[in-house]
Design a protein around this nucleic acid. Structure first.
Lengths: 200, 200, 200, 200
DNA sequence: CATTAAACGAGACGGTACGTCTCGTCTTTGC
DNA sequence: GCAAAGACGAGACGTACCGTCTCGTTTAATG
């Protein structure tokens, strides 16, 4: 995090603002979050928010990033299917958490009309996870766990796609069993040498 | 459409309002659409909007539904892969259209805190497409084009998942070639008897 | 008054706003009157104030004019000294009233940097009283109560001058005895034919 | 000047602040002067202003007092009419100067709700001039230039009254000819022994 | 037909929030 | 070791919309 800025005076107020923003979003929904209400709730002046964050979107992005939940690094135990299932399950849980879910989906919508927000969203939140997933898939392919001709990017997007579809579009977060079938089905179709060690 | 209400006086004004709402959304983004501006743009009184629509979300949902683009019925030529590819490509195009995209993604976000909107969104827009897709997959399975143990719902969600992931999350709509590989890959993994007639 | 505007909807709210403005000014002083507080106190929306009054100054001017105290017409009993003494005493009382005083002095100050306010102030409040005074003095001169070469404008300004000096500059409103001596002294210096009928 | 305080560190910054305050008042009007803007303009820290002046009013009073224009001492050539005319003309010029006028009128208004300011205003600015005027009139009476029963205080207030009336209320500063007629008229009405040496 | 009830455009109303500015206090930093 | 710079909580500025509420004016359907 580029934060812990040496020019900022009160780190206490920064935390209060981020927490208030998250709480507000959880309670009233992304669209109804107002800087006014966040300031009131945080016991901060509005100017303090406007001084450090250019928009509601960036504020909420920072707030969610500052939580640091849902580590972006993928486990690598040597078993792709297991590793991906674990990570996807974790991601699904994060997306459907009442604190992070509303923020995330609000940000995704807002990013469509706010270029600056879109960039920061990719840089700070989405990009790293995407790349970590692709990297994990590549490692598996190089070890022969996946077919040599597999398209890791497409695979990654299919993997994440269902998660977003269930959490965002359908608003029915997948059970972990469902995630397991999802991952196994997708990777099974591209199995490499020993047809994967797992039996699903 | 339940519309074409016999109590409504001016169908002209209804169209003007829906068009104004879509235009406004395309120009300023979902969140910044205001009833005030829509009324002004449509040359209508605010009360006329509030009389017929309970919220901005429902107004925009109606507006997008009234466009009727992206037919919900799936083609059935006997070739699942071809049919699904065609329909998915059409869906991808719709999602990334500058008129419909912003509305759709705004609605998806808003639905997270507006139950009434969520229901209408499912009923009028998402549900029918989902069911049509499942029905088409079921038909294919029954004809032996897909393995007997295939889970059509999961498959449908994987199919749509990528589209939403690319259009909504990544904001880089898939090319039709990409969609083709996506569909072929997914269905190929669950091929039935004659391993599908297509050679991809 | 050009008021009782046919485009205004709620005359009730107009009165509430004017009263709130006066009360506020009496309590916190002209400079500290805020539109925000007036609106809050009147139970009105800020926009309602901004819709009808261009500035705090004009609002307070309207408020004080709407009180209509301190009639602008001078009595004419045939005795200039008595008539002017009466009117000047009335004016002094008005200027030093806790409701009108602060408003008036605030307006006079503000008019120095607000041309529009200055014009309305002259038109609605100061001008008529000035002219009425000059007219009364002219009538006296024509009847021979005052010397034929008297300068009514200068005399009027001297008459009012002391009132403003005491009320505004010194902040010690003149007693009515003082006003009587003031008027008698000034007019005595310009006595006409019968050296005025009064013996003071 | 009671200033040139030995506790003050930088006299340079004091001057810069006073000048900035005057300039600001001339440009934007008394009411719109803000400590913030004065500090910015003077290149000073806000705290430096708050440290030495309790309020905007006192700051501006100090600023105008520090100019020292419009000497408070009345000339005494032996001719009251001439002396008072000279001093009143000087006072009128001061009041209508674009630098001092706005400050003075703002202070007079503010004094109505700021007791501390009112006292300092009287002590540092108004009182001395008033007393000097009364003293000059008393000297004239004692020399027989004015009638023995003249009320010097009333006369002084009439003399100054017109000046304030013209400068502050009417916003049309008197010409020097007008001031001459004003003074001559007032004093003529109370002439003592030799009907004054001047022939006006 | 005339009557009449409603839907219409317009926009005032009491409000909330916007993003900016200033208040007066408090803290840091650089000269 | 002080003063500039400026962050801070607070709250007013004037504007934009919210959703409700009259206003007169169409406009259709009825009696």
């Amino acid at each position: 995090m580029a934060w812990a800025n040496q020019y900022r005076r009160s780190d206490e107020s920064r935390r209060a603002i981020l927490d208030a923003a998250l709480a507000q979003c959880r309670e009233v929904g992304y669209e109804s979050v107002s800087i006014e209400a966040v300031a009131r709730r945080a016991g901060a002046g509005k100017q303090t928010i406007y001084r450090w964050w250019p928009s509601k979107g960036v504020l909420l992005l920072d707030a969610v990033v500052s939580l640091g939940s849902d580590s972006e690094s993928f486990p690598d135990t040597g078993d792709v299917v297991a590793d991906l299932t674990a990570q996807m399950t974790r991601a699904a849980r994060t997306m459907s958490s009442p604190t992070i879910g509303p923020v995330l989906f609000g940000l995704l919508g807002a990013a469509h009309h706010d270029t600056a927000l879109a960039e920061r969203l990719d840089r700070d939140l989405l990009g790293p996870r995407r790349e970590a997933c692709v990297a994990r898939l590549r490692a598996a392919r190089e070890r022969g766990e996946l077919a040599a001709d597999v398209d890791e990017t497409l695979l990654m997007e299919q993997l994440y796609g269902l998660l977003y579809y269930r959490s965002l579009v359908i608003r029915k977060p997948p059970t972990s069993a469902y995630v397991r079938r999802h991952v196994a089905g997708l990777l099974g179709g591209h199995a490499g040498r020993p047809r994967a060690r797992r039996k699903d």
